[in-house]
Computed example of a mutant assay.
Amino acid sequence: MANQFVLVWSLLLTALTVCCLTSASDPSPLQDFCVADSNSQGFLAVKMNGFACKNPTTVRANDFSFSGLHIPGNTANAVGSAVTSATVTQIPGLNTLGISMVRVDYAPWGINPPHTHPRGTEILTVIKGTLEVGFVTSNPDNRLISKILRKGDVFVFPIGLIHFQRNVGHGNAVAIAALSSQNPGVITVANSVFGSKPDISADILAKAFQLDESIVRKLQWTF
């Protein structure tokens, strides 16, 4: 009797574990595709977790394609880089498929500043030039893991971790990155901290970054 009780209890725990693991992962699509309907109320202003599906009988090849990643981005800006996205916003057919990609252009010594993708892991391939790349592990270690990449090299940035790229070559650089989300999002650290609307109180940031409040206010004005 005791052995039967242990067996039943073990099976129950196993079932609960499987249920928990299943509910913690993204569900598989229940149909071939769910092209985002640009005429639906929530499109481009995410009011639900994903977008409503377009009538499959009206779906066309253009819903699954995008032209533009061959065009260099304009790097004439403060950071010297430009990102051209191919997410669900540009390709409605990506809806529910959990993948997207970007092209990143870098001027000489341009950077893609420290940022995170809250909903996607990134895998980056250098197409042209030489990049210094890296990410920082979470607290309490905050360990920097970085590497110099050249044409054809690949690097992975785990989901949610702060990461960056810098062009350390003599000419322009180009990278293509894929992300494990149709809409991975991006949080640029400096913009978010010093450019929030409304501003985070200067005394909070001064204490957090161990800076004088006048410097914080100058940074807030800049961003």
Rank of each mutant, 00 (worst) to 15 (best):
L21I: 13
T116M: 12
G50D: 05
V216Q: 06
P72M: 01
Q220K: 00
T22S: 11
V79R: 03
I145F: 08
A76E: 07
Q90V: 09
L179V: 14
N172V: 10
G68D: 14
F194D: 04
T87H: 12
V193A: 03
G80H: 07
G93K: 06
K151D: 13
T58I: 12
L161G: 12
Q41F: 15
T188M: 07
F64V: 11
D26L: 06
A173I: 08
M48L: 09
S28V: 09
P56T: 09
L149M: 13
R150L: 00
L149C: 03
N62G: 10
A52I: 08
D212K: 11
A76W: 01
L30N: 14
N74I: 03
N62L: 09
S214A: 10
T22Y: 10
T96C: 05
A78P: 00
T57R: 05
V88N: 07
V193L: 13
V189W: 09
F194K: 02
T96D: 01
P56E: 04
F194E: 01
F135D: 08
V189K: 01
N3H: 15
I148V: 15
R217H: 04
T121P: 02
Q182G: 07
N74T: 04
R217A: 01
W9V: 15
D105H: 00
I99C: 09
R119Y: 13
A78D: 10
N74E: 03
R143S: 08
G134Q: 11
T222C: 00
L211K: 08
I215F: 04
P108M: 11
Q182L: 06
L16H: 02
